[in-house]
Every structure is written in C-alpha cells, then in structure tokens.
Computed example of a mutant assay.
Amino acid sequence: MDLNLRGKIAVLTGASVGIGLAVAEGFAAEGVNLVLAARQPERLADAAGQLAAKYGVQAVPVAADVASVEGVEQIVAAAREHFGGVDILFNNAGTGSNETIMEAPDEKWQAYWELHVMAAVRLARGLVPLMKQRGGGVILNNASICAVQPLGYEPIYNVTKAALLMLSKNLANELIKDNIRVNTINPGLILTPDWIKTAKQLTQDSGGDWEGHLQQVADEHAPIRRFASPAELADFIVFLCSERASYSVGAAYFVDGGMLKTV
C-alpha cells in the first residue's frame, strides 16, 4: 500500500530512542523529511545522521526540552527555518512515574503536566499555522493504555496521559475545519529501553533474569503474552499519519495485545 508520504515533513518529540526512534525510521522509510527533537544531543545527532544516510531524507536534530517554552520554540523554529512548514506532528516525549498521590509534591505533578500536556498544547499552537499554510496536516498524540486503565504505582502518569487523551479530542474538533486531523495512540506493553533498564534493576539482586521478569509482566497483563517491538507500533502510527487514514478524526487507538479489559 502506497501511503503517499514521500516529501512530507514530520516533527517528532522523544525521537532519539524507543518508540520515537522507531517511528522516525518508519517515516524515513516512506521518504518523509524529519525534525527530530530530544534532550540528549549526541544520541539525537547520531540517530539523525543514520536515518539520513540510510533513507536519503533530511533529518534535522533539535536538542531541546519539550517540557519548556524555550524548547518548544526551538522545535518550531527548526521546522520553519529548515522546511518552511510541517505536515505531521507526533507528540511522543514522556516518561513513567512512581509515587503515591498522598506523598507526591506539587512540583512533580507540575513537571509531568508540562511534559505530557503543555508540550502538546504549545507545539500545536506553534506548528498548526505552518500546517495551515500547506493545506492541512496530522497531529498524533502518544498517550497510553494507562489513560483509561491505570497502573497503581504511577498515578501522575495516569492522570496526565488521561488529560492528553481529552486534549486530543478537543483539539480534533477545533482543527478539522482546517483539514488537520488529530488522533491519539494508546500503546500497551512496548519493549523500550526503559522497560529493559527497569527490569534489569529489579532483578539484579535475584539472579538477573530480566527477560523472565518481562515475560511475567506480559503474562499478567497482555493476552498475547508478549511485549510489542517499537517497530510494530511504529507501523501503525505511520499509517495513521497517512492519507490512508483520512477519515480518522478524534479517535483513540489501543495497540495493546488485548491488555485493555473493557470494550
């Protein structure tokens, strides 16, 4: 299936590793030029260079903190200066949390609000005018299954991802008149470096069987009984950002191996 994405311009956050990097590669394979944003400049520059060399696309690295006003301004400026516009925004930057509501300080709540919600708000405000100039575009926000089915140890993550899901729905209604489609992706268990790092930490005093630990997690939560690879999720994301998904507006898609327990 030809997704007709060649020559499009995509902005991705959290783009140097895991899901973000896999989506960047998926876009690059379709001929999409990239603005890649993340906080670690060396890893980001390396990823951009490899994608450009492998796929023959332009890949612009922007080392920026998307949770800050200044970081968002850097990303918007890069899209404007290097490409004169943008067609796709994939809001992916984020991280898990670990706390109780009774003990978490205000500062932690605010930090996650800035990262998971306000980054998406600010990037939309900055990039939507550039999309309008090109006749429309696509915004896809990466939330989580935890937006509707929370995990007990990370209430701040659950709450802010739920807010991102609602933001997407409202933004979709507001922007469809401008031919800009907004949707949400809610992944389940995706085998990112963060999952592997956590598993190794949790098993270091009990034999180090981190793979066995992850298998237990998959057995407990996902009927498919395994994690997805970032590339599996990326394939679906790239499709949603193409014209082949042109009637998809304000929707939330669960890619979770059956983890969601409701209909």
Rank of each mutant, 00 (worst) to 15 (best):
D2V: 13
L3Q: 13
L5D: 07
G7Q: 07
I9M: 07
L12K: 11
V17T: 06
G18W: 14
G20R: 00
A22C: 10
L36D: 03
L36N: 07
L44H: 03
A47N: 09
A48L: 00
Q50C: 04
A53C: 01
A53P: 00
V60H: 10
A63G: 00
D65L: 01
D65K: 12
R80T: 12
E81F: 06
H82M: 15
G84Y: 09
N91Q: 10
N91Y: 04
G94Q: 15
G94E: 11
S97T: 03
N98C: 09
M102I: 05
D106W: 05
W109L: 15
V117E: 07
A119R: 01
A119C: 02
V121K: 13
R122F: 00
A124Y: 12
A124V: 15
L130H: 06
M131L: 15
G136D: 05
V138K: 14
V138N: 06
N142E: 01
A143L: 13
S144V: 13
A162H: 07
L165E: 12
M166D: 14
S168M: 09
A172I: 03
N173R: 12
I176T: 13
N179R: 06
N179S: 10
I180P: 05
R181W: 01
P187R: 10
L191A: 10
P193Q: 01
P193N: 02
P193L: 06
I196A: 12
A199P: 12
Q201C: 08
G208Y: 15
Q216W: 05
I224T: 06
R225H: 06
R226S: 09
R226T: 14
F227V: 08
D235H: 06
D235I: 02
E243P: 07
Y247H: 11
S248H: 13
S248I: 07
V249A: 08
A252R: 10
Y253D: 03
F254C: 14
G257C: 05
G258D: 03
M259T: 05
M259K: 11
T262A: 00
